[in-house]
Design a binder for these strands. Structure first.
Lengths: 343, 343
DNA sequence: TCTATTAATGTTACCGTTAACATTAATGTG
DNA sequence: CACATTAATGTTAACGGTAACATTAATAGA
């Protein structure tokens, strides 16, 4: 509902044409100053609210962008949304938020609906259940402006904004090796179809290789990005014979690490003495845990901001280049890795 | 962007009228089965995406609702949004998210924009800087469907969904008195213009009165809902002469309590021995703090869900009654109040 | 004074879709 | 076989706004 006052109503009330009213309200030149004032006053008193639906139909521009996130409870995403919000707010765009709940089907549906609503562009962070990229490819080929963030799909024609996942994962794994002398290091990985799953795994591998440590398949557990998945993955790891336990664990992200910690505690083991563990995200809970979690700090707000900026530029500028934008991380040394741990 | 294939294009390609195509795609009766198949196939192959902008113009229905939240970082709100999302997702509505960042002006702007976009209804949680209710009143009078949640404004013609703030605040204050025998209890309050600020304050007062404890103005510090505000308020309280310190503090919400805890620690005091403290929300961090926080658990997801349901009913049913829906809370006894504290 | 120029306003058509009514073709009935 | 009935499709206008062109009134210049 809302106001059903239209240009025509104002025009009739004033005895002018709708066009004149339109011009007056949009501050066009070639309108008599007196007329403009009369129109503005009348519009005000009649409670006129411009109808963007009609405007959009004419201009085929909605000043609306869609945001597709895989999970709304993982604190990282609300923080990203805050960054996006900051940009849209200062640039007259509105934001459709959709939560795919880690289901690729739900994600596809959401994107189709966004297209029907004729959003000007879409920001996407893929679900952990992505199967094939062809859906995205068709989307991009159809001319839809897209920017991926965090969980990106590169080289299919869309810009991406993410952190240097591989280097960061390598760095934190290296910390376990170099500083703490661990040689038996496990990885709770994410799905390899998702960029961050793959890259963080690669970073882990790279660190092992750099120090000539063997890569043991039994220590690489494929899980997911949620606490539950981390818990399950860790349970699996702890089902190995005790003598095969790793000394340290690199989790794909903080929720996964937090789940794993729960499993470790249930086993009666202590962190970091029996098993050290590190995460990736710098979740709001990381510094507050019993044993504060060593992790990689991801500037979520910044990721959101840059992604939104890039998307809007892509929308407004035909020849905006496709880029893979990388936002730097920082390592947060706390105690779960075995360090003394200043938070 | 996206597809610029329209009904007309399909119609021409098939040598039929646009109307027939429209009917076929919308599963209307009176369309030949063969024609329908031909249309569906053609639509698919041409990559047709229905244009909801045009649809909305005709039907003056957008299947879109606006959500205005005051703060996106306070974990409570993303959780509410998750509840809202759950409902919209299963009922074909899309969700415009706007963050007012606790600024009433920004909130008003957001709402006006939402009206221009012709949303079918709006979910509002007011900013802590609300000044007057006339803006809301005009909004409601103009026929806009509105439901307030959490930070509500009652009795101005819109339904509300909130927790039993007053009773809960009374209950947790009573706990401090009855179980721990405290008689000197302070309150870090929120703005009184906002429902939860006022009601929680009232609950605090009620508990004191029930036990004939004096109400001391110097122990009632007006602050706000954010960590910073709690910190400042507590600093103010601690600027009293030491002998005037309260024994316990009731904070308006968890972020405020967390800020206050920081101030207490900075003063070298210990919790709960020197000063006990309780919050309200059950923030994700509450059980993880050094001294786990005793607080009121607010079912955020449920609040979001109910608010969204009520809004959609209000939109779809002319005669839907105005209600003040109350979602029950539960008290979470941890250690910050002086209890032994099972989390 | 008459015409050229400019400022202000008006008209028409269209954006993509659908409701409402109109037309045509197909089927059945006595 | 003529006519009523129904099924399938077509035509027109409208939703609210604006671009593009048309018209009118006012001003300036020769």
């Amino acid at each position: 509902m809302g106001s059903d006052v239209t240009l025509k109503h104002i025009a009739e009330a004033l005895g002018v044409s709708a066009m004149t009213v339109s011009r007056a309200l949009n501050n066009r030149s070639n309108v008599d100053e007196k007329t403009r004032e009369r129109v503005l006053e009348k519009a005000q008193s009649m409670g006129y609210t411009p109808n963007h639906v009609a405007k959009s139909l004419v201009s085929s521009k909605t000043y609306t962008i869609g945001v597709v996130i895989p999970e709304i409870t993982h604190a990282f995403f609300p923080e990203v949304v805050r960054g996006i919000e900051e940009v849209t707010n200062t640039s007259d765009y509105q934001l459709f938020l959709t939560n795919a709940d880690e289901q690729f089907d739900r994600e596809k549906n959401a994107i189709r609906t966004l297209q029907s609503k004729r959003v000007d562009g879409i920001l996407i962070s893929s679900s952990q259940t992505v199967e094939d990229y062809s859906f995205y490819e068709e989307l991009i080929n159809s001319g839809t402006s897209i920017v991926f963030f965090d969980r990106c799909i590169e080289d299919i024609g869309a810009s991406t904004v993410s952190v240097n996942d591989k280097e960061s994962a390598c760095q934190i794994t290296e910390h376990l090796i170099k500083v703490h002398g661990f040689t038996k290091i496990a990885h709770l990985s994410g799905p390899q179809e998702v960029s961050i799953g793959k890259k963080r795994f690669q970073g882990y591998l790279e660190a092992l290789q750099k120090y000539d440590l063997p890569v043991e398949d039994q220590w690489i557990i494929s899980g997911g990005f949620q606490e539950e998945r981390g818990y399950e993955a860790m349970k699996k790891l702890l089902s190995l014979p005790v003598e095969k336990y790793p000394e340290a664990v690199v989790a794909v992200n903080d929720p996964s690490a937090i789940g794993a910690i729960k499993a470790i505690k249930e086993e009666g083991l202590s962190i970091p003495d029996d098993i050290a563990i590190v995460g990736f995200t710098d979740d709001i809970r990381a510094p507050l845990l019993d044993v504060p979690l060593t992790t990689i700090h991801q500037p979520a707000y910044e990721v959101g901001k840059q992604a939104a900026q890039k998307l809007i530029q892509t929308i407004e500028n035909e020849s905006e280049p496709i880029e893979n934008i990388v936002v730097p991380t920082s390592i947060k040394i706390r105690s779960s890795c075995g360090c003394e741990g200043n938070t």
